[in-house]
């Protein structure tokens, strides 16, 4: 049980750190405004969703 918990914490933290650093890494030049052409689902909060102009701009402002 203890092993499971420790193992899981390590795994989750690795993921969290990778996620955090990935989002801190700036996008390369010329790629700031890439849009995928995904229209599969209507999750309006998904960054890849093309209708999502507002969120996309915010993301770029932070970067």
């Amino acid at each position: 049980m203890i092993k499971a918990i420790i193992y899981f914490i390590i795994l989750a933290v690795i993921y969290g750190v990778l996620y955090y650093f990935n989002h801190k890494t700036p996008k390369p030049e010329g790629c700031e405004n890439l849009r995928s052409s995904c229209e599969g689902c209507n999750i309006t909060s998904c960054m890849a969703h093309p209708n999502n102009d507002r969120l996309f701009k915010e993301e770029n402002k932070n970067a």
Binding site: A12, Y15, G16, Y19, Y20, H23
Partner: peptide
């Protein structure tokens, strides 16, 4: 906010 998605996935 920064680790929102990882927390949700967990």
């Amino acid at each position: 906010d920064e680790v929102r998605i990882p927390v949700y996935i967990v």
